[in-house]
Nucleic acid binder design. Structure first.
Length: 272
DNA sequence: AGTGCGACCCGAACGC
DNA sequence: TGCGTTCGGGTCGCAC
């Protein structure tokens, strides 16, 4: 599942691969993936070029001359650079062919990812972009901000960490890791989170995301960066997918319980 | 307003 | 060459 660190890795990789290449042709093999008008999508991209790639939370923002192409990878979306001659695979749903004989191909086994082409001035008011909260490492992500967001919340802190309008970019992997590092029980309600705990969340999230980006993200079954390189943060996971393994701090078994339908990995001893 | 949950997808894992 | 069922997971939209 690409989260902020994985999306950042994809962004960095693609920036080295596709900037300033002229788009010759666009093929959309699964139309539902494109939220914009399909005809317009292809027409506007043809002859255009990507001049930069930005990111907001888990959203990739490809910059064109007068437009932005928004792309959300959801769970299994990946971009690959290939030779145009290679046969198009079953799960390659959008193909951008460049004049130089290469393709940027969007691959998504579960077809959950979405793309949308918007005018540059529409970015600031785009609902999905607009709702994003501050990111781990942002100066504005303060204790006061978090406590205000957690105030009166009767839902589990784990669920709140997945809320993109509070902290932008965390998914299941890093939400689990941040709570372990912060020694907070994932079932604890938002309104019960103390100042000290909010401080821990801020520090842990910044440190973990920074480290994960350095290591190229985490590779969980479905995810490889566009180069196909394995994210090495996998080796530093403390609780995520570690069910039944001994806690690296206290040795008791890591548990997996559902919170709001999502697998939640934690150490019941370390996370009181 | 806050909260919960089904839908969207389909390969993998599971049950028999 | 086993086959049918369940599961998972980010986000949205809807129900309450």
């Amino acid at each position: 599942m690409p989260e902020i660190a994985e999306v950042e890795t994809v962004r960095n990789t693609l920036k080295k691969q596709i900037l300033y290449k002229k788009v010759k042709e666009v093929q959309v093999l699964y139309p539902k993936m494109i939220l914009s008008d399909l005809e317009e999508f292809s027409t506007l991209l043809k002859g255009n070029q990507f001049v930069d790639i930005k990111r907001r939370g888990k959203w990739l923002i490809f910059e064109l001359e007068h437009h932005f192409l928004l792309s959300h990878l959801r769970m299994e979306g990946k971009f690959f650079l290939k030779n145009s001659k290679e046969e198009i695979l079953k799960h390659e749903h959008v193909v951008f062919s460049f004049l130089d004989g290469t393709d940027l191909r969007y691959h998504d086994t579960r077809k959950f990812g979405r793309m949308e082409l918007i005018l540059k001035e529409e970015l600031a008011t785009h609902p999905s972009i607009l709702k994003q909260g501050f990111e781990p490492g942002d100066e504005e992500l303060t204790v006061e901000y978090l406590l205000e967001k957690f105030k009166n919340k009767n839902i589990a802190i784990k669920t709140l960490l997945l809320d993109q309008s509070i902290i932008s970019g965390l998914g299941n992997i890093y939400a689990n890791e941040v709570l372990f590092a912060s020694k907070i029980n994932p079932f604890k309600k938002g309104k019960e989170i103390t100042k000290k705990e909010a401080e821990q969340i801020i520090k842990s999230a910044a440190r973990i995301i920074k480290r994960a980006i350095e290591l190229g993200g985490t590779t969980i079954k479905s995810y490889t960066s566009s180069l196909g390189v394995m994210g090495r943060f996998q080796q530093e996971l403390m609780v995520h997918k570690q069910e039944g393994e001994p806690c690296k701090i206290c040795g008791s078994f890591i548990r997996n319980e559902k919170i709001n339908g999502r697998s939640t990995y934690f150490c019941a001893i370390c996370q009181k």
